[in-house]
Design a protein around this nucleic acid. Structure first.
Length: 442
RNA sequence: GCCGUGGUAGUGUAGUGGUCUAGCAUAGGGGACUGUCGCUCCUCUAACCCGGGUUCAAAUCCCGGCCACGGCGCCA
């Protein structure tokens, strides 16, 4: 059957599918969305219409005079994921999913699909295939649930930080200097100059702590690391916070409250999404456990029987050993000064360790941060110790001539957190369009 | 960047020198079916990553390329 396309015209949705129930029996509604399933039993025709909120069944019986003949003919011809609007009457019926169905009076086909779709909900496809056809993949309930959780997470973070006197900022992602050290940067062409994509908001948010005192930003940053793991991407979304007139301990206690606030919000607003994902979110008790780096090394050496020397970085397999003793959220504080960037403040009583921390969820590192150096001379000294050239940091160092308060902050990986919250197997599932060393499209 | 594994219909897989004319499931086309809800039944369409080599014979063995996967390093 050749089905012609119709224009939207004046027809508008009156409800999302989730707004409807058996109690609306007899009500005339207009719903719209995508055909999720189509089953025909001869003179009895069903299709499932899905929208952003859920789905409902549209039922046409041949012996129902309310349903126009053209609609009866059209329904079996509808393809999966065709875009349709349905004007119809709600009919309560225990046999229908959700206890009600829509009896169609008018069905408009607004758009069709290619004939053989590469993905079908409920069947196995590899992540690579899914990502190659991401829009279609995201149409599936489970995947929409992941990003609804992200949306509520964003809102809850914004709500918490706003309530706690933080100002949301936005810092440049195109930068002119490649000298922060650490992670590899992506070089870009910027007219006739050398430029790079920002690997973190670190220096700018520190500067802004001398203006707005407390700032936060949710923004992408770029890491040119050829990492092939389930938890690394080249373009990542981070939550950065920075607090003036504060040190590491203010950050620890503020951020753990932020996390609890977010978890509570998700539990409250995403109950159906969590059910779809098969996730139960336990809200951790405050305060989070704080282990020092030295305690962790000690634990690994004794209880973990893991070979590691003080001063070494904690490798992935070491974290997995640690996972047996430390569950859920915890902080590891006072890392060796040598292992941390130039802007991290060494401890006053023992300069070998620093006022730094990582936030762990089991073996996964979710955040890192600490007290920053706010004394300019000392900062220059620290740059030199890290074999970085202070001249390259002139613009940043200026801020320390203009009245820089003591400050502290952290960077938090949104994608990794969302992976944990949604039970995703791979960080790429928790990012709409993930960028890895091997993937630049779609 | 390093080590390892793999690439077969749209999708997911079976097949590891010779009746493979490449099997199965699902999706797709056509048909039957008045309560489906992973509907069911009949029927049809549809595939050996690319290039070279070995062999009487290659989906299968070898070399190169491309792509993917698992892990490590690095980190959020």
């Amino acid at each position: 059957m050749d089905v012609p396309l119709e224009s939207l015209g004046e027809l508008r949705k009156t409800h999302y599918t989730s707004d409807l129930s058996a109690e609306d029996d007899g009500k005339e509604v207009v719903i719209g969305g995508w055909v999720a399933k189509n089953r025909s039993l001869g003179g009895l025709k069903f299709f499932i219409l899905q929208d952003r909120e859920g789905s409902c069944q549209v039922t046409a019986k041949d012996d129902n005079p309310d349903v126009p003949d053209d609609v009866k003919k059209l329904i079996p011809a509808l393809g999966i994921m065709w875009v349709v609007m349905v004007k119809g009457k709600i009919r309560a019926d225990q046999r229908a999913p959700g206890g009600f169905e829509v009896v169609p009076l008018q069905v408009k086909v607004l758009n069709k699909t290619m004939q053989q779709l590469p993905l079908v909900e409920g069947t196995n496809a590899e992540l690579d295939t899914r990502l190659n056809n991401r829009v279609l993949d995201l149409r599936f309930k489970r995947n929409q649930a992941i990003f609804k959780v992200q949306h509520v997470m964003f809102n809850a973070f914004r709500e918490f930080f706003t309530q706690n006197h933080f100002t949301e900022i936005s810092t440049p992602k195109i930068i002119g200097s490649a000298t922060e050290g650490g992670t590899e940067l992506f070089p870009i062409v910027y007219f006739n100059k050398e430029a790079f994509l920002s690997q973190s908001a670190q220096l700018y948010k520190e500067q802004m702590s001398s203006v707005f005192e407390r700032v936060f930003e949710i923004a992408p940053c770029y890491r040119a690391e050829a990492s092939h793991t389930k938890r690394h991407l080249c373009e990542i979304l981070t939550l950065d916070i920075e607090m003036g007139f504060a040190n590491i301990y203010d950050v620890l206690s503020t951020f753990e409250r932020a996390l609890v606030h977010v978890l509570q919000a998700i539990n409250k607003e995403c109950a159906s999404q969590l059910k779809t994902l098969g996730q139960k979110l336990l809200v951790p008790e405050l305060p989070f456990k704080r282990y020092t780096y030295s305690e962790v090394i000690d634990l690994l050496q004794t209880k973990g029987k893991y070979k590691i020397e003080w001063g070494e970085d904690i490798a992935t397999d070491a974290y997995r050993v640690l996972d047996k003793f430390m569950k859920g959220y915890f902080y590891i504080i006072k890392w060796p000064t040598a292992a941390k960037p130039f802007y991290i403040q060494p401890c006053e009583d023992d300069e070998k360790v620093s006022e730094s921390f990582d936030l762990q969820y089991g073996f996964l590192e979710l955040a890192s941060g600490g007290t920053r150096v706010h004394n300019k001379d000392f900062l220059i000294q620290r740059l030199r110790e890290k074999k970085l050239n202070p001249v390259s940091f002139e613009d940043h160092l200026k801020a320390f001539d203009f009245g820089m308060p003591p400050h502290a902050g952290l960077g938090f990986g949104i994608g990794r957190f969302l992976t944990v919250l949604t039970g995703a197997q791979d960080i790429r599932e928790a990012v709409l369009y993930p960028r890895t060393p091997d993937r630049l499209t779609p």
